[in-house]
């Protein structure tokens, strides 16, 4: 009797482990922090790319509607790819704030003058610490941030795609 119970118990454990490992196979192994909705410290100061003026980042955000934050660099090839989508967002009158990541101001300005400037304001991040505040792991990354709660609503790691563009449009319509 007790032998049968042991046997069945072992069998059941085995099946459970099997199912869990089976599901584990399909879980993405990449780092993802999409679920995290961390608050941004709005008291952060940063330097503007175009005027060398130091400002408080809370001034850049629209208090009533969400803004888009995009981390980019002129040396980053995928940033070049996604630039067209940012320009489209700009055409829809969306407030996009650029964070220029570990870049030379000269190259950054050239990049924007040749491809167009989608940003309402660009702040510089020479040592990469500002991007850490946004929970970024590299360039490019794009965030949608609620002006009301200072929270990150949505994250995109890597270059934006045309599908992302539609998603962002819908999100911003909801006016969170």
């Amino acid at each position: 009797m007790s032998k049968n119970i042991k046997f069945l118990g072992l069998l059941l454990t085995l099946i459970i482990i099997f199912i869990i490992l089976l599901k584990g196979l399909n879980v993405s192994k990449d780092y993802s922090n999409k679920k995290l909705k961390s608050k941004i410290d709005f008291s952060l100061n940063a330097k503007k790319l175009f005027s060398d003026e130091i400002i408080n980042i809370s001034d850049l955000f629209d208090k009533n509607s969400p803004s888009v934050v995009n981390i980019w660099a002129s040396w980053c090839a995928p940033c070049r790819e996604e630039h067209q989508f940012l320009m489209k967002l700009k055409d829809m009158n969306i407030n996009i704030i650029g964070i220029n990541y570990k870049d030379s101001p000269k190259n950054a300005k050239n990049f924007l003058s040749s491809l167009g400037n989608p940003y309402s304001e660009v702040i510089t991040d020479n040592d990469g610490t500002k991007s850490i505040e946004f929970g970024a792991i590299g360039v490019p990354e794009t965030f949608i941030i609620s002006g009301k709660t200072n929270e990150i609503i949505k994250k995109y790691i890597g270059p934006l795609t045309s599908e992302n563009l539609i998603e962002i449009k819908n999100l911003l319509k909801k006016n969170v």
């Binding site: 570990k102 040592d127 990469g128 850490i132 792991i137 590299g138």
Partner: peptide
Amino acid sequence: SDFAISMKLVVKN
């Protein structure tokens, strides 16, 4: 890596 260098700075700050 760039990320790690920035992270070290943030921790130091």
